[in-house]
Design a protein around this nucleic acid. Structure first.
Length: 661
DNA sequence: TCAATCCGTATC
DNA sequence: ATACGGATTGAC
């Protein structure tokens, strides 16, 4: 290191600056997105900046002749840099917004995802809002957390033991299969409360704003006011930064939030929680595309804290955590489960289907119609789950536009692709030789039947009953305990005050026949999440063949069995998460150039290329789980080589890509 | 021999 | 990106 001496200043413009007496060197992560610059750069701290220039503050630095933003990672006595060090241009604010624990996590996430630290830090630290920073914060509440009633966890084998471990500050890691009807926000709030009582902080992730609202309310109920903040985009930048600061300044011990909260700072983190980790909203769409579950698990590992992965469904990744012994299972005993679960029945092979006059009127399988009618008569609401509008087009006659109906049950006929055989979206029967009952035409055209149209049809089937819809445009959060039919798309199901008397899962054929890797898992997740809303004395009707494994798992309410099966299948096929994959996308030339530069680990399988959008192509690289770190390192290195020599055409790298085909 | 320009490389 | 240094070129 060479400190600029008292050289005779030729031009008087620069103010003379002396380095700080102790720890004069600041290591800075400069905000540049280039892989070959993904390392800290050392700067001198001026004596006047000594106090403000603490680890975690925002700084401005001159970098390659330009003023750039950066984050101060650490102070040091000396630098290994050979040349002259420049001074920090200025400390933007003395607010230490990058927690050391989060900084370590960010580095690990960057490494795992073959990305840059500065990219990850941009995800971890919200944009500054100067006014909010200067405002004085509300005082932290005094007093103890009320003793938590933990009976809610008593229904689970190992549930009480898990909470005890949290309170005692022992490390406990669990995959929790919530029982149907569970007040899961309440259970999560209880787990948070005992952790806080043990003197540690908590980060809770949920997939969307609606779940966040529920957990937010539960936290207030269990912890009292002022002990947690909810982080989500909806709050707006100023409010969002205010809440971030409340966590960063350790004024609250608990943060709940959507994806971006995975990096939220809390003092002495003791527990991370993620609910429904199969929801695809947990995949971050910005580089380097980290998945919230993986970030939280990395965080738990690095910080040595507890982890709770909860849901009605169970992902392959969670199952792997159990099979490797990293986490323990928390699950209700069969007895408790029997008391909680509704009567679940398939209709796929319903022998009465065609003959039942009620079914014909309702254009529903008779079993479904009867169950719904019974629930309504009992004074309870009915939930009908249908896939999202446009998810799978149904069809009409190409000549006269009469909607194409199943000859057996009058359900709508759907086609997955132009050449596919029309198949009923209700009963799943194929109609290879369909002809239009109105004009005899044999050609079909696609038309859309969304939740609204389904609602209209059901309105005719249940005259005099209120029909409501909940979907992308307008999401219902809760509905009262009175007779009504709610048609909802997956993920938009409201919670009924005392549970639904009946839950109908329609259009299951559309979900089951999708060919991508997660189709079965995703179907299971959607069914379980909807079926969990049924009353214990209610019914769940799934319009599918009872012999299918996915349907079997639902009937038996056994997400563990299903996940085990699913993971075994992926093991056989060498699919993630058993093996690990990386996607390399770009123009043919760029991708070829990249792969030439990459020193891939021994045994890497190079699959492809396959065509990708915009005239690009994609390769998939596959390695064993143990070599994933090595692969990520090799990819980052190759990206660095290319960016250093200014390769014109970019290549997009993605570890664990969401779609494999 | 010197200045203008090009190219490659580092960026503290 | 921009800036700098060494190499290269061309004119005197």
């Amino acid at each position: 290191m060479e400190v600029p001496g008292k050289k005779p200043s030729g031009k008087a413009a620069k103010p003379r600056r002396e380095p700080a007496a102790r720890l004069p060197v600041a290591r800075v992560c400069v905000e540049v997105p280039l892989p070959h610059l993904d390392r800290p750069f050392d700067y001198l701290v001026a004596a006047g900046d000594d106090e403000a220039a603490q680890p975690g503050v925002r700084v401005r630095v001159r970098f390659a002749g330009q003023l750039m933003s950066g984050l101060l990672l650490e102070r040091a006595e000396t630098s290994a840099h050979e040349g002259k060090l420049a001074f920090l241009d200025r400390v933007v604010s003395a607010e230490r917004i990058l927690d050391p624990e989060v900084a370590r996590l960010a580095r690990a996430v960057a490494d795992r995802y073959a990305g840059n630290l500065s990219d990850v830090l941009r995800l971890a630290v919200p944009p500054r809002h100067a006014r909010v920073e200067s405002q004085t914060p509300p005082p932290t509440p005094e007093g103890d957390i009320a003793a938590v009633a933990e009976q809610g966890w008593d229904g689970y084998v190992a549930g009480a033991a898990f909470l005890r471990a949290l309170e005692d500050g022992r490390v406990a890691r669990a995959v929790w299969s919530a029982s149907p009807g569970e007040d899961w926000p309440g259970r999560i709030a209880e787990a948070a409360a005992v952790t806080v009582r043990g003197g540690r902080g908590v980060v809770v992730l949920v997939a969307d704003a609606r779940d966040l609202e529920r957990v937010d309310l539960a936290m207030t109920r269990v912890l009292g006011e002022g002990r947690h903040v909810a982080l989500n985009a909806a709050a707006g930048p100023a409010e969002r930064y205010r809440r971030f600061l409340a966590a960063s300044r350790h004024q609250v011990p608990v943060v709940v939030g959507t994806r971006a909260a995975m990096f939220a700072p809390v003092a002495e983190i003791g527990l991370v929680v993620i609910w429904d980790d199969g929801d695809d909203l947990y995949a971050e769409p910005r580089a380097p595309y980290p998945h919230a579950r993986e970030v939280l698990l990395t965080r738990a590992q690095l910080a040595g804290c507890s982890a709770l992965i909860g849901g009605f469904a169970r992902t392959g990744e969670s199952q792997l955590l159990l099979e490797t012994g990293w986490a323990k299972e928390i699950i209700a005993s069969r007895d408790v489960l029997r008391q909680r679960v509704a009567r679940i029945q398939p209709t796929g092979d319903d022998p009465q289907l065609a003959r039942d006059p009620g079914a014909a009127t309702a254009r529903l399988p008779s079993l479904g119609w009867q169950a719904a009618r019974a629930a309504l008569q009992g004074g309870h609401p009915v939930l009908v789950q249908v896939p999202r509008r446009g998810y799978l087009p149904s069809t009409a006659c190409a000549e006269c536009r009469t909607p194409a109906r199943c000859p057996h049950c009058s359900g709508p006929l759907g086609v997955a692709g132009a050449r596919d055989v029309p198949t009923c979206r209700w009963c799943g029967r194929a109609s290879a030789d369909y002809s239009c009952p109105a004009c005899g035409g044999r050609r079909l055209r696609a038309s859309i039947t969304g939740a609204r149209r389904t609602a209209e049809e059901l309105g005719r089937a249940f005259p005099g009953v209120t029909i409501r819809t909940s979907g992308r445009d307008e999401v219902l959060t809760t509905i009262p305990a009175e007779p009504a039919v709610v048609v909802a798309t997956p993920g938009a199901e409201p919670v009924a005050d005392e549970g639904f008397g009946c839950v109908l899962l329609l259009d299951t054929w559309a979900l089951l026949t999708r060919s991508d890797l997660r189709a079965a898992e995703e179907t299971m997740r959607r069914w379980l999440n909807a079926a969990a809303l049924a009353r214990p004395d209610g019914s769940v009707i799934v319009v599918a063949d009872g012999s299918l494994a996915t349907v079997q798992a639902l009937l038996r309410w056994d997400p563990g069995w299903f996940a085990e099966r699913e993971l075994a299948e992926r093991r056989e096929l060498r699919f993630p998460p058993i093996a690990r994959m990386a996607g390399v996308t770009g123009t043919a030339d760029a991708v070829a150039d990249f792969l030439r530069a990459a020193r891939l680990p021994d045994g890497t399988e190079v699959l492809g290329p396959v065509p990708a959008p915009e005239d690009q192509e994609r390769f998939l690289l596959r390695v064993s789980r143990g070599k994933a770190g090595e692969l990520a390192h090799a990819l980052h290195e190759a990206a660095a080589v290319r960016s250093a020599r200014k390769a014109a055409q970019p290549v997009r790298l993605q570890m664990d890509p969401g779609t494999l085909f």
